[in-house]
Simulated scan of single mutants.
Amino acid sequence: MKKLLTFTAACALATALATGAFAAEYTKGTVKKVDLKGKKVTIIHEELKNLDMPAMTMVFKVADDAMLEKVKEGQEIEFSADRINGNLTVVDLKE
């Protein structure tokens, strides 16, 4: 019985991954400021549904410092964000 439950759970996870149920949700925004020293970016963004936040301007940390080299002030971007260790963080940039 335990093997059947494990198999069923594995199948459900594989199906969810294949259908994109766990795909990152991207939000549109405009880069207002890039802080290389502080490793942060300020973004005027649309609603962040996964964080239950309305459209606003916010400062985000970045999950990877290389992201800071990919953006510049005034640039339109699509990004995904999440709360990591209590900090709002850009985790991916759509290219």
Rank of each mutant, 00 (worst) to 15 (best):
R83W: 05
L48W: 03
K70N: 07
F22D: 12
G86P: 03
L51G: 07
A55S: 15
A12R: 00
D64Y: 00
L68W: 01
A16I: 10
D35H: 14
I77D: 04
T19A: 08
L13E: 14
F60Q: 00
H45L: 08
D82P: 02
A18G: 15
L93T: 00
K40I: 01
L5M: 13
L68E: 12
N50A: 10
K94R: 11
A18Y: 12
T27W: 02
N50P: 02
K33E: 15
N87Y: 14
A9M: 14
E46Q: 14
S80T: 10
A21I: 04
G38A: 15
E69S: 15
N85M: 07
V91D: 09
K3H: 13
F22R: 04
L4R: 06
L88E: 00
L51F: 04
L4P: 02
T30P: 03
D64H: 00
L5I: 13
F60A: 02
L48F: 07
G20V: 06
G38M: 06
Q75G: 01
E76G: 08
K3G: 05
L4N: 09
V91L: 12
L93P: 06
A81S: 07
L51V: 09
D92Q: 14
K70T: 09
G29V: 02
G29S: 08
A21N: 13
T8S: 15
K94E: 10
V71L: 01
V41W: 01
M53A: 13
D82V: 06
A12I: 12
F7N: 07
L4V: 07
R83Q: 04
K94I: 07
I43R: 04
L36K: 13
A66N: 11
I84T: 08
F22E: 06
K37N: 12
K28C: 10
L4F: 06
L4H: 08
K28T: 05
C11D: 11
E47C: 06
N85K: 00
N50L: 13
G38D: 07
I43L: 14
A12F: 11
V41C: 08
A14H: 03
L36Y: 14
C11I: 11
L93N: 01
A18T: 06
L51D: 08
V90F: 06
T42C: 14
E47L: 11
A66G: 01
L5W: 15
A18L: 15
G74S: 09
D64C: 01
A14G: 05
T6G: 00
T57V: 12
T57Y: 10
A55G: 10
E69R: 09
A14Q: 05
L48S: 08
T27H: 04
T89A: 05
D35L: 14
G20A: 01
M53N: 01
H45V: 05
T30C: 10
M53Q: 10
G38E: 10
M67I: 02
L5Y: 15
F60M: 06
M58H: 05
L88I: 10
G20I: 07
N87A: 14
A55V: 04
I84F: 09
T42F: 14
L13M: 15
T27G: 08
D35C: 07
E46R: 04
L51N: 01
T27K: 01
F22S: 09
M67R: 03
G74V: 02
L36D: 11
D65P: 00
A55H: 07
D92H: 12
L88P: 01
N87H: 12
L4G: 01
L93S: 03
T89I: 09
